[in-house]
Design a protein around this nucleic acid. Structure first.
Length: 627
RNA sequence: GGGCCCGUGGCCUAGUAUGGAUAAGGCGGCGGCCUCCUAAGCCGCAGAUCGCCGGUUCAAGUCCGGCCGGGCCCGCCA
């Protein structure tokens, strides 16, 4: 971080000369306030009992600019800011030069070197296709994985496969008792078909006692690893999973390990955790009362959960609950256990890396090692059970603060979309429900955007082949959906509206792609000519300065994103950067601007492309050379 | 009843972590810009007592307290 770091160091040094230690610095939002600004005089005003503007003025008088390189001047501004301006020639050269030198590393500190982070996302029950709520999970999780990768961590991406009877039994009923074909009708994918069948059968189970009894029998059989039902289930799960992951891959995600819930029991991960919990004294066996015979975790020491009663870990029939299995699983993720899974190879990601799945008969090992952090992308509705999981892990010792529940709010349907699906409930939005068949498939949305984008591209490029149109449409679709799901606060509900989500204009993924394509076009037309990082002697255009400021800001944005795992901040920055470039594009012609100016502007355009590539890679937004 | 999240122009969203200068974008509306590197773009206009009340502060969209409105969670489900 040479360019901006140098400026910050220099300003810090100047302020120190004036007696201000460890000043707070920020990049002001308005260009008339200079390139860096300090509010330190306000803080000092209190201590010194003097007006901040006096302190600011005095500080500026004490500064010696003769040794300063990047800073040209400082100004005290009422009511007490100190605004610093740069020597644009040097600053521009330093920033553009830095971007073009560091290339794909620009903006990322290698803070994760030597550390492993496990990111778990997707974790969709293997009985249905992904709807747009699941897509939000995938996009957030994949973006976190990409972020950690860029920061130098060893990243392990896991997907938790809930293959338990509760999820799967309805489909078993359909295929094996109710005469449903295992082949979906033409044009329907197997996972979509299962989702539909699941909703249908689930409705019948609720009203038909005989089916409910049969379902219980299936669930019981699934506990027996030697049964035909168990083997059938594994095949079924794997088949749905393959379809689900094709949607995830389409969205740009990749995985290393698939961990089956049933294997937490099968590999004695739970048994070891159970013993450890017993020793810690945090769990107890209820000897009377309504929960007689259950093992519970005592939440008496928990600040909020204590008011809601203890959590059951083992039911009186000896079956573990979800929270129990998740405590065991979390302990495994954090490397607190002796027991481990074995795996078999399940398949490959589009990038060629292999995907392992837990398998008691598999011969593959996966060495997780010591995890620095375990980030779990799970619906915010599971905050309470996740809090209990954290509490359980804490009792085992060694896991404090390393287990993170990355919570995100649900995606609901707009009134317009709900009506379209025939579920008019009159509110502003409607919750999706797999069981009730109220949802919009992620693939379907991608297909709608893809068609729309391909049609638009065909208008602009009548000469393009069908393949090229398809390929472009696909990338635009992924950009549009991913950006739409990443740009707002993860903890804020998204009211999904198809019309809005398929828009290709405004603050969208395609907007980012478009600015990149324009930049590429300029370089192409120049014949990829030599650039210069040194600006011409005459003054830079304000639009050039703005672009340089934005490029310089990227490392600061990344620091913020890393510290708070604040993905939306990066998405918003990407749009700001694109918008700044579009303004530059309108105001500053590159080609034919005079030799020196053209050469510098080519450098600027290249730097913009580089930063866009870095940011969009993390966001998982594919870029296009032309569109 | 308890706990968590949200409330910013007609609609959607950023800004709240770490209080600071003129509250920033997008959609929709109206008006403009393609003999000049792609108009999926750009410019202009209209539109906001930042849910309400109180407090802290030189300074509050941001912090604290209370209230109102919306959502979620509180099962021997997952």
């Amino acid at each position: 971080m040479v360019g901006l770091r140098r400026l910050i160091d220099e300003v810090t040094w100047l302020l120190r000369q004036a007696g201000i230690e460890e000043p707070r610095l920020e990049m002001p939002k308005h260009p008339s306030y200079g390139e860096l600004s300090s509010t330190a005089p306000f803080e000092l005003a209190r201590k010194l009992r003097r007006p901040p503007i006096q302190i600011a003025e005095e500080a500026v008088r004490k500064m010696d600019f003769s040794a300063a390189k990047l800073v040209s001047s400082a100004e005290a501004v009422a009511p007490g800011y100190i605004n610093f301006r740069v020597r644009w020639g040097l600053f521009a050269e330093s920033i553009v030069g830095e971007v073009l030198e560091e290339r794909e590393r620009y903006g990322f500190k290698p803070s994760g070197e030597g550390k492993t982070v496990l990111v778990e996302h997707t974790s969709v029950n293997p009985n249905k296709a992904l709807h747009i709520g699941h897509a939000r999970n995938v996009c957030l999780g994949d973006t976190l994985a990409r972020l950690f990768t860029k920061l130098g961590y060893r990243v392990v991406v896991a997907n938790y496969i809930d293959d338990s009877g509760n999820q799967m039994a309805d489909i078993h009923l359909a295929f094996r008792k109710l005469g449903y074909s295992e082949q979906p009708p033409d044009g329907e994918r197997f996972d979509e078909y299962c989702g539909r069948v699941y909703a249908e059968v689930n409705r019948r189970v609720e009203s038909e006692a005989e089916l409910a009894a049969e379902k219980r029998r299936i669930i019981a059989e699934l506990e027996d690893a030697g049964s035909e039902t168990f083997r059938y289930n594994r095949r079924l799960v794997s088949r749905v999973l393959r379809e689900q992951l094709s949607t995830c891959w389409r969205l740009g995600a990749r995985y290393d390990i698939l961990n089956r819930e049933s294997d937490i029991i099968a590999f004695d991960i739970w048994r070891e955790t159970f013993e450890r919990l017993k020793k810690s004294g945090i769990i107890y066996l209820a000897e009377d009362g309504p929960k007689k015979g259950c093992w519970l975790i005592s939440l008496a020491g928990h600040p909020t959960l204590s008011r809601e009663g203890d959590e059951v870990l083992v039911k009186s029939d000896g079956v573990t609950t979800y929270v129990a299995r998740d405590i065991a699983y979390a302990a495994w993720k954090l490397g607190l256990l002796e027991r481990d899974f074995t795996y078999s190879v399940w398949g490959e990601n589009p990038d060629g890396t292999r995907i392992l799945i837990t398998d008691p008969e598999g011969g593959e090992r996966f060495t997780l090692g010591e995890t620095w952090l375990s980030v779990n992308v799970i619906d915010a509705r599971q905050k309470r059970p996740q809090e209990a999981v954290k509490y359980g892990v804490k009792a085992l010792g060694g896991g404090e603060g390393r287990y993170i529940h990355f919570a995100y709010a649900v995606v609901t349907l707009s009134r317009r979309d709900a009506e379209r699906l025939g579920v008019d409930v009159g509110g502003r939005f409607t919750h999706m429900s797999g069981r009730e068949g109220i949802y919009i498939n992620a693939d379907a949305v991608l297909d709608v955007i893809k068609r729309k984008a391909a049609e638009e591209a065909a208008k602009r490029h009548p000469d393009w082949s069908r393949e090229k149109l398809e390929e472009t449409g696909e990338k635009i679709a992924v950009a549009a959906l991913r950006y739409g799901l990443l740009k707002s606060d993860a903890e804020k509900m998204i009211v999904f509206d198809t019309e809005e989500a398929t828009s290709l204009e405004g603050a969208t993924g395609p907007y980012l792609q478009y600015s990149y394509a324009r930049a590429t076009r300029i370089l192409e037309k120049s014949g990829w000519a030599e650039h210069s990082v040194k600006p011409p002697a005459d003054e830079l255009h304000e639009a050039e300065r703005e672009l340089i400021r934005k490029l310089a800001q990227m490392p600061l944005v990344m620091e913020e994103v890393e510290k708070l795992l604040l993905i939306k901040r990066l998405a918003v920055y990407a749009h700001e950067l694109s918008s700044t470039f579009n303004d530059f594009y309108e105001k500053c012609p590159v080609l034919g601007a005079g030799e020196e100016t053209t050469r510098f502007r080519l450098g600027l355009v290249k730097a913009f492309r580089q930063v866009m590539e870095n940011v969009c890679w993390v966001l998982g937004i594919p870029l296009l050379e032309e569109m």
